[in-house]
Design a protein around this nucleic acid. Structure first.
Lengths: 146, 146
DNA sequence: TCCTTATTGAGACATGGTATCAATAAACAT
DNA sequence: ATGTTTATTGATACCATGTCTCAATAAGGA
């Protein structure tokens, strides 16, 4: 993911500590998802995984993606390209920007969002436990090259 | 939708003015979507539509839902229950809150969001053309009855 | 009322994702 | 190291959601 790097080792230990067995499929998928710049679907991840590990099964990839999502290591992207794409989760950063030209995803600072949510809680009386904010448009690069 | 009312007549004229023919299927679906309190999938809309108009076809409902979405009359809900649910669009109000207990959807004032987006544009250099903010939690009623 | 053509309904089809179950391979005790 | 247990895997059948096709229907203007 742009602007930040993720260490696959950290994910491996995270998976390990959560009680699951450490397998080569997981390792493969973690390697893939920790490095992507673009949101990736489970189907696409399967294609990529088979390059490194040809007999990888489809269901296994779907299961592993679900596991990584449940562990909070990857996040589902909701929006223009559909809702079956995933990006690595960057802790504390919640606002995801997606460029509609090049497709790249980037996290933006979410501090102001926290305040906004607190404000909404006060005015509505609802108790807000989770949020999804996604922004779409043209990234700085694509604007220049347009 | 909670807290606001929508006049199905306005939608009918909107569809009419956009160059489509006025049909009974459209009328039926507009009637349904203009009144829902809960996000509704196309499949569910089909079920409801057949109560009033038994021989309504499935594909037609999907096509009409897509049309209403393209016209901006209904909006896709992205989140916990999946991404295939729709709620009526309330112009100028963009922040959608969904109660995880009772499932009801409610729009919140989005003015602060506009500022937040402007702020993000300045600091990131990206040009933001669209946004999706959804909030999840327990609504005031459900908190009381818990 | 007739004619033109958008819209419809039925069902075949495509896609994305899940369930089943025997085979495999981690983890651990020996 | 080796064997045992059991989570994980891969192949395949299956299901759900959504799309495509095409003849039949109905909206809207002449």
């Amino acid at each position: 993911m742009r602007g930040k790097t993720i260490d696959p080792e950290d994910w491996l230990t995270a998976v390990d500590e959560s009680g699951f067995r450490a397998t080569t499929v997981q390792e493969t998928l973690i390697d893939i998802f920790a490095r992507v710049e673009y949101p990736l679907s489970a189907e696409q991840a399967w294609d990529v995984a088979r390059l490194a590990r040809p007999k990888t099964g489809r269901a296994t990839v779907y299961r592993t993606v679900e596991k990584l999502e449940n562990l909070g290591l990857i996040r589902r992207v909701h929006g223009y390209q559909g809702c079956s794409y995933f990006v690595p989760t960057l802790p504390e950063l919640m606002m995801l920007f997606i460029c509609l030209d090049c497709g790249r995803a980037e996290y933006l600072d979410s501090q102001p969002l926290d305040e906004l949510i607190k404000q909404s809680e006060d005015s509505s009386g609802h108790h807000i436990t989770d949020s999804r904010l996604q922004l779409f448009g043209a990234c700085a690069d694509c604007q220049q090259n347009a």
